[in-house]
Design a protein around this nucleic acid. Sequence first.
DNA 1: TTGTATGCGTTATCAA
DNA 2: TTGATAACGCATACAA
Lengths: 346, 346
Amino acid sequence: MSKTKEKNVSIKDVAKEASVSITTVSRILNNINYPVSNEARTRVEKAIKNLGYIPNKAAQNLRKNETRTIGLIVRDIGDPYFSEMAKGVTEKAAQLNYMAMVSDSNRNMDYELKYLDLMIRQGVKGIIISGGGIMEEEYQSELQKRVQDARRLGIKVVALSSQGIDLPLVTVDNIQIGKTVCNFFILNNYKKIAFIGGNEKVTTNYERLLGYKIALKEKGMEIDENLIINGQFTWEAGYETCKILFDRKREIDSIFCANDNIAIGVIRFLRENKIKIPNEVSLIGVGDIPIAQYTSPSLTTVKIPFNLIGNRAVELICSDENIEDSSIYFKTQLIVRESIKIPKIS
Amino acid sequence: MSKTKEKNVSIKDVAKEASVSITTVSRILNNINYPVSNEARTRVEKAIKNLGYIPNKAAQNLRKNETRTIGLIVRDIGDPYFSEMAKGVTEKAAQLNYMAMVSDSNRNMDYELKYLDLMIRQGVKGIIISGGGIMEEEYQSELQKRVQDARRLGIKVVALSSQGIDLPLVTVDNIQIGKTVCNFFILNNYKKIAFIGGNEKVTTNYERLLGYKIALKEKGMEIDENLIINGQFTWEAGYETCKILFDRKREIDSIFCANDNIAIGVIRFLRENKIKIPNEVSLIGVGDIPIAQYTSPSLTTVKIPFNLIGNRAVELICSDENIEDSSIYFKTQLIVRESIKIPKIS
DNA sequence: TTGTATGCGTTATCAA
DNA sequence: TTGATAACGCATACAA
């Protein structure tokens, strides 16, 4: 087997081999129903096979001034939240004959901006930003710049959570999620409902917490700031943050975890401290990541349709419609599992 | 904001704006230390800024006949095994200024081959195949063809598990893993060691099982086929397969799960059936996916350095060395957690 | 039904 | 220190 790259075989070589013009070859390759004589067609097809001709994407991209690639920016592909989104994206992209370029910012916002730049340079068809927005002026203004660059070049940008700037969204109603969870606790007679959040600068966290507060207010219940604590959207942080919460306050009968990862950390903490779930404390998460069914106890949570969201975002990008002004909200659903006691008997 | 794509600004426009030749612009852009007068340089830099010039990747790719992209094929990006690998890959790719194109075959081998074709057409620098090889002649021969196509075009192909064909590997010694786990059970006085595997046609499963059998033989212990069962590498399958195993045979004191996912399913099954881990049955998995620390009980497992593997595979592809003949094996390590009782008191 | 010629935006060669 | 120009591989307008 040869170790070095051979000369690329181009459409030209095929044309020569088949004794036709490159136009004819190109037509056979692309214009499905352009009239070409059977003779020529068979000769060309044979030549293609003989030479092992493979069309050069770079040339096509240049000529057509478009690539069939879409960019996806995630914060941590190892986090089920993002990998499920990525699944929805790559799946639909493949269906539509696109390729997905995935960049993992590792929760570093500078990287996130850098990857945006790279994707714009790559000339992707569109970019999907999948993490919750960061509520920081400088970041948002930098993001805004990129979005403008992208638009100028005809690159669509879609976000899967609100980013605090004007951007089409494919997402869920996070305030509603907060309300739903909190109301469910209240309905079942829980009185001391704690909130363990992720990064407090992230829009999704803010919105879920807001929903929690609204629900409490609507029922005339007091908002106890000692029951509210934020950290990060990870297992480790869920564990640590829960510890801080219980050091601070012990009378807690239920915990609203801003995502399932946090809930997993919380389960671990409670288990180590012999606090029974759901008998002493009930737990609800957000996301319904696949592992939520396999925790002990299994996790009550609000299902976010990651797959549909990823799918739809890709469709939006690959469609020809203008999407700058349209946002799409998917329904969520509370999935009741073992981590909550219903009805609560106090 | 304009809704339509404006005319792209090219190096030509910059040249005109700055009253220099495109050559000079190109030199300023690329040849870091090519001598250019300061005057020209500042004019060009200003023009670039004014016009919002962004280099066209497609043209660069065509001209230089190479892209700074690498392809990664995974079976299920939602599976921690693959998302962790993907993390290692995307991380290193970004460091080296490459972009990763990720395709998820959803464990469908036809898709896997199709994605290989697509990536070859894209003209990626290299392709990383991340799932265990399928021991099926037809598939392997199709795979072989793609690999040859790729090589002819100067595209490097690396696999992260043996594929049954001649391919450079960045991987771990799966037979050794099987031996390590089994020996650890034996050392601790376990007698009825079951094996719950994934897909029996996958090389990694085969190799881990082989290691298990070798270890038993070396200690003069009998291989009981009733203790061996295969299924899929997923939680659901782990659960179902474990059920079948226990229907078949009840005297089991330990289970070697071919990966951590399976172990998670097994934990669930045993818990539902009130079989205590590790008091009645001990458990060891393979992989050390992040969740392994957070299961109840936490999981004893063999750590596969996903991150290092992903990193190294990218380095291999992006380096200029020829790699066709070199494989790299990373060390693995047994991580002891709560799912095993040591020493076993019988 | 077929072919010629042009240009997409770059980089690189060569000459000045 | 600078610039004109060819070439990368392809799709397409136009001509035949």
